[in-house]
């Protein structure tokens, strides 16, 4: 399990989905949180990806995922 922590739900275990490269050198990495489905690039401004700065209004409570509605129920 990776140590990368999701800046939205604070859960560890984020996946590495892609690395942007130039001349063989990694420029940035895209991560994805398997818990809350947030994806981010590690080169983004801190306001979007630093959990200490990011607006709490957009946090997801990993312990309470049942609260999110399923769309298109029969």
């Amino acid at each position: 399990m990776s140590k990368t922590v999701c800046p939205r739900c604070a859960t560890g275990g984020a996946l590495d989905d892609y690395q942007g490269k130039e001349g063989g050198k990694v420029v940035w990495t895209i991560h994805r949180c398997p818990t809350c489905c947030f994806s981010w690039r590690d080169s983004e401004p801190a306001s979007a990806i630093d959990i200490g700065i990011r607006s709490a209004d957009f946090a997801v409570d990993a312990a309470n995922l049942d609260r999110y509605v399923k769309i298109l129920q029969q």
């Binding site: 939205r8 989905d17 892609y18 895209i30 994805r32 489905c37 994806s39 981010w40 690039r41 306001s47």
Partner: peptide, 19 residues
């Protein structure tokens, strides 16, 4: 298949949940 190989995506608005 890796969509990121083909699509130069970016976050449209700052607090979007992804790309």
């Amino acid at each position: 298949i890796n969509l990121y190989d083909v699509l130069p995506v970016y976050r449209i608005n700052e607090y979007d949940g992804g790309f």
